[in-house]
Nucleic acid binder design. Sequence first.
DNA 1: TTATACTGCTAATGTTAGTTAGTGTATTTT
DNA 2: AAAATACACTAACTAACATTAGCAGTATAA
Lengths: 196, 196
Amino acid sequence: MGRIKTENNSSRKEIILKKSAELFKEKGYKAASMRELAEIVGVEAASLYNHIRSKSELLHLICFNVATHYSAFMDEVEAEKNNSLYKIEKLIRFLIDGMVENFEEVYVCDREWKYLTEPYLSNFQSQRRTFRKRFASIIEEGIRKKEIKKIDATTAVLVILHAISGIESWHRSKQKFDGKELQENMITILVGGLKK
Amino acid sequence: MGRIKTENNSSRKEIILKKSAELFKEKGYKAASMRELAEIVGVEAASLYNHIRSKSELLHLICFNVATHYSAFMDEVEAEKNNSLYKIEKLIRFLIDGMVENFEEVYVCDREWKYLTEPYLSNFQSQRRTFRKRFASIIEEGIRKKEIKKIDATTAVLVILHAISGIESWHRSKQKFDGKELQENMITILVGGLKK
DNA sequence: TTATACTGCTAATGTTAGTTAGTGTATTTT
DNA sequence: AAAATACACTAACTAACATTAGCAGTATAA
């Protein structure tokens, strides 16, 4: 079939990784086969193993890329000296951006992480729990400072995160779609729902 | 192994259906095997086929049960002579109740429908699209009557539906959990985010 | 130009999947 | 009590899966 074409600075492994995210998003991790992935990449299935260790390696690379990216941004936000509503808005915008720009990876990370194998599974779950707790803490701070309504912070985090992860329905239905407009609408609804 | 025990008014098929919803929720449709399902039911895998036609029949029964239930409730709400915010609140409460009470079925319907086979897949997608459009129409009516902020109705529906479907995280983390309190919190955030 | 690491191929392996066939027994109906 | 139906079993089948072994050609560096 000929080699995998590498362009720019991306290695063959990175190409496979990118394509696998698209495939996993499309079909789901379990339903996606290495043969399909190989065909998309333009190579025989066995040849993939010159570049990757296993199918599950692909999944955990995708999930941990996203997770560490999120964690790093949370560090940044926490370090700021701003009020809670501002921080929350910033987080929401970041999450929507991530969903729009790195759609496949974020989507797979969101919906397919349960197929991670140990020890990655436990590790991932712990990172996810931590992220949510940090998010909830910001909301709680806002409640204490009376910027935000008295609500259960954990519920608020849940609503926000799942509302954002739902953006996938968009990608399915509209090909051309305005990320900025979406952001403004979601901010209005979500931040509006929290504000006192 | 002996027969499947039938209790009350539920047929053996209904027992299998219920258990399959739990299994599909737990492992995902593709990762769940008929042999596992059989073991849970207390029977050999082949014996399941005395009651059901195929694995995919189970999935489509689950999905269409939920879909027709939702559609019927939408009929009811649309027929009412109430303002939009009231209708929306009623819908949200209904959806949360459904998520809490028939958790497994609703969850599977939400996350695993893409594994439906034709012609069920197209049919299901169309029902889902219709439900969302009807929901959006109620919101648009509210915007026209100035009960609701000027936002994109489709985005609002998206936010609401996905926020609710996110309740699964709850079931995972808390064993004892108060459906009513959850409802009030979510209503506060979501309806609060729409209200002018 | 020769040596080495890369990267593709074909072929095969072992596992697991959904499902069917055929048989015997328990339950229900007549 | 006899006949019919329901249902569970064992055994097997075919298909698909991830992955490995071994080999051949190709790009890269010496």
